[in-house]
């Protein structure tokens, strides 16, 4: 088993969901320089943070809105489409070939089916790359083109995670969103080509360890994996913030118009373009959004005209908030 242990003391109630796996005291005995071990060890803190960010914690408690789940699925679609595109391009690369398992791992098709289930046949026209997901996607393309060995890190972070905690999320989502037990909407979590997830993770680790890499490259892969964790958290954070603006009740999306749905009609789903949203971010105490709001406003060319609109909107917002 892996050695992901918690640094923080026991917390009460349902706060975190990681499996605590027995730590082996003496790591020196068996090649601690194996990449699989360096990764498990080196991303422990990131994993703790990811598991404990608000969005994930709420999710684990079954507090997930359908709208957010849909958006999360869309975000994943862009991430996996990028990742798998780059992996395919590099499939013969000596550092990618050993971990190339398209039949077992690749998720793009599964995500497309999920999106079709949630959004209908024209799902492609209904989703768009959100601001919180774009840096992640860009980074994947960047490493795919310039430094393919780092794709190992991206692949590890997502696929191994999906084969571990992802299975817990699947069950939670199925129950919380009352998704059909036949698996519609959850194809992403269902690895048809993998019979034993534990066994597959072992095979995957052995393949990562077979890669011929020097110490420096291994360190870079660990670094990139931590970075991938951060990108994931950015996506979660964005979803969490969107969630605050959705007045939708858990489980009953579709009854009346949720704010999110209305906005979706307005701007194709990029919530960050919504000034209301940015202002709300500011109001919710997230300083980076203040900057972002300002930037957004400034990039608008007819500034005077826009300003008037902003003022009106913000005033409206403030009034709303006060009530």
């Amino acid at each position: 088993m892996t050695t992901k242990t918690k640094a923080e003391p026991k917390s009460s109630g349902v706060t975190n969901g990681g499996a605590r796996i027995v730590v082996d005291g003496d790591d020196e005995v068996l090649s601690p320089t194996d990449l699989s071990e360096m990764l498990a060890e080196g991303t422990k803190d990131s994993h703790d943070k990811a598991e404990n960010c608000q969005f994930v914690k709420d999710f684990l408690r079954g507090r997930i809105k359908r709208e957010l789940f849909k958006r999360g699925t869309a975000a994943l679609y862009f991430v996996y489409a990028a990742m798998e595109e780059e992996i395919e391009k590099n499939e013969d690369h000596p550092h990618i070939a050993p971990i190339y398992f398209p039949a077992e791992l690749h998720r793009r098709e599964a995500l497309a089916r999920d999106l079709e289930y949630f959004y209908g046949e024209d799902w492609e026209s209904q989703i768009s790359l959100s601001a919180g997901t774009k840096p992640y996607v860009d980074r994947i393309h960047e490493v795919g083109q310039r430094d393919p060995v780092l794709l190992v890190a991206h692949s590890y972070t997502r696929y191994m995670g999906d084969l571990s905690g992802g299975q817990i999320l699947k069950k939670v989502a199925q129950r919380a969103l009352k998704l059909p037990s036949t698996g519609e909407g959850l194809n992403f979590y269902q690895f048809e080509g993998i019979h034993s997830q534990k066994g597959f993770k072992q095979l995957y680790r052995s393949r990562m360890n077979e890669l011929e890499l020097d110490a420096e490259t291994k360190e870079r892969i660990v670094g990139e994996s931590n970075r991938a964790f951060s990108f994931n958290m950015m996506v979660f954070t964005e979803l969490e913030e969107i969630g605050k603006t959705i007045k939708e009740e858990v489980q009953d999306a579709g009854l009346g118009h949720s704010h999110a749905e209305i906005m979706e009609g307005m701007d194709g789903g990029d919530i960050n373009k919504c000034p209301y949203y940015a202002a709300k971010m500011v109001a919710s105490g997230n300083p980076t959004y203040a900057c972002q709001l300002a930037m957004t406003l400034l990039r608008h060319p007819p500034c005077q005209w826009a300003l008037a609109a902003w003022v009106a909107l913000l005033a409206g917002f403030t009034a709303w908030y006060l009530l």
Partner: peptide
């Protein structure tokens, strides 16, 4: 949350 955001910002800087 704060440290997490710092983290995110640092990591995403090039893009």
């Amino acid at each position: 949350m704060a440290d997490m955001d710092a983290d995110t910002a640092a990591h995403t800087e090039p893009s």
